[in-house]
Design a protein around this nucleic acid. Structure first.
Lengths: 332, 332
DNA sequence: TTGTAGGCGTTATCAG
DNA sequence: CTGATAACGCCTACAA
């Protein structure tokens, strides 16, 4: 019932363990005949090397750890898919940690580089806490930030500000002068995307000679309901906006439905632009910002694997670009 | 730059490694004063025990492996959330393997119980291949099937047939006599849910004295587009159905939109029932079958952890029940 | 209560 | 080309 070990194989094949190790490691310098004997013994015993023992001996686990916030959101799921896709080409395995509640955050980061459980870490949409950075200072381990940035750490991010700027400029170009921003609240430790979008939004208005109004920036729940509530409130005002830029397609979907429910036509009465370009967006004919979500994950893995395999170089900062996908809801 | 080991701590604290091991393992029988000295040394050195070495020594990795098909679908994401939730209470860690393409399947299962990389395995919505089962016969390892069943393996599943039966019965009770089934194709190695639903659908019709027609069973792409195409084809027939039972909420969403686009009112002209009860369903007012997706994951973890910690007992088979959530689209 | 030695399964080194 | 043997870092007897 015990799993056969390399020693069992060696005995079975009548060779030393070193030779077996060379054979299963696919290393050269072993006589063809010997190799064959060993392979036969491996097959007969159905031997499989222990990844744990190998990891201890080589100081390498062939595992990547990824820290990701609540995996419900399409954004993270897409990033994960990108990570998975990139991983398929390597022989690394994925260890996943999610931070669903802020309280979990400290524990997760404390255990993060913990005793080399993984060869590298991918942190998605989170700002690493100071304690973690301090630890890194002493024993630098390969870490890559995805959809976040930090001067000392390698990262792959998207410029949310530039993306929002472009989206709002497009609406301005269409003649809109009252444009509302409907976004979700920033996550406790990842102000990133909503903050960037807000800056881009304000900048676009300012550029056009308009004064951004705080009352046009609405924070709504991250769901269609949130979007619907927000648009209802906006349209109930004496001077309603003629366009809405939403911080997520999910909220944009609610904006669309809410506007229609109130008898407004889209895009004639209200133009709507979303963010992310999830699968649903195409179906809804939603004009939106296409964020390279999978690419974020893929590049993250590339950078991490490079960092693991190459000697520590200076942190790289990759910035991916988003593009505006014009469909029906903006009237462009 | 080297990570401190238990030996460094022992030297620093002026004790033996055994004592340090006892302290960090939280075991009793160590003098308070000694314990304090050791803890101080641990803090000073910022020592963290190596999970790899511990795993090798204890033959236990404190890791659970989960095999899940394409993580895009809400169903799997929800199951994963359930798994995560249950895991949070334990000190196990998650190793994830996805099977996006059928070709990956063999490789994943071949490497599955491989040399104790994990203490247990959770297989989601997949029928384990014969080769895997054979291996299990020789060296039984804790495995739990989620949303799938096998006589020899512990499992937690939902009765898709019963759920479909109930949903279609409901439509029949509302007076519908032409009810179409719009479902997606079964995955290569997991006929499970579409097959079960089809049986339930047919059974309900038969019970009501109706003859199920093959032409009323439409296989559509797993997307809103798929649902929309399917409903368009159905409504174009000379004798269109008055109700549609969809195999997923995502497709039901397309059915809704497609029907409306063709000028049909829902539920007056066409009743629609979905499946799964994803978040969007509530928003759309979609009547649907609530599948306990998170619960599947949670129970799976419970069963697995039990199997790991208790001696091998007979395989348990847990069957979870779904309920029909009546909202607006069925006219009930 | 505490220290020491042996073992967990591999890989790497180094004679032969 | 091949076989011992010493790490790798920890845990668990066992002895003191």
């Amino acid at each position: 019932m015990r799993m056969p070990t390399i020693r069992d194989v060696a005995r079975e094949a009548g060779v030393g363990v070193g030779t077996v190790s060379r054979v299963i490691g696919g290393r050269p310098r072993v006589a063809p005949a010997t190799r064959e004997r060993v392979e036969a013994a491996v097959a007969r015993l159905d031997y499989r090397p222990s990844p744990v023992a190998r990891a201890l001996s080589q100081q390498r686990t062939q595992t990547l750890e990824v820290v990701v916030p609540l995996i419900t959101r399409d954004f993270y799921v897409e990033v994960l898919r990108g990570i998975e896709a990139a991983l398929a080409a390597t022989d690394y395995t994925l260890l996943i940690r999610t931070i669903e509640r802020p309280a979990e955050r400290d524990g997760v980061f404390a255990a993060l580089g913990e005793g080399e459980r993984a060869d590298g870490v991918l942190i998605v949409s989170q700002e690493p806490p100071a304690s973690f950075l301090a630890r890194l200072g002493k024993r630098p381990a390969p870490v890559v930030l995805v959809d976040a940035t930090h001067p000392q750490l390698t990262s792959v991010a998207v410029d949310h500000q530039a993306a929002a700027l472009r989206a709002v400029r497009h609406l301005l170009g269409l003649g809109h002068r009252r444009i509302a921003l409907v976004d979700h609240a920033a996550m406790p430790f990842a102000q990133g995307s909503p903050a960037g979008r807000r800056r881009g939004y304000r900048l676009a208005l300012t550029e056009a000679g308009l004064r951004p109004r705080r009352s046009d920036e609405v924070v709504a729940a991250f769901s269609p309901f949130g979007g619907e509530e927000a648009v209802a409130a906006l349209l109930a005002r004496p001077d309603p906006p003629t366009a809405v830029f939403a911080g997520s397609d999910v909220q944009a979907m609610g904006v669309l439905a809410g506007a229609r429910r109130l008898g407004r036509r889209v895009p004639e009465d209200l133009a709507v632009v979303g963010y992310n370009d999830i699968e649903l967006a195409g179906y809804l004919g939603l004009t939106t910002v296409r964020v390279p979500m999978r690419e974020l994950g893929r590049r993250g893995v590339d950078l991490l694997v490079t960092a693991i395999e190459a000697p520590a170089t200076a942190p790289a900062h990759v910035l991916l670009t988003s593009e505006l996908v014009v469909r029906a809801t903006c009237g462009g």
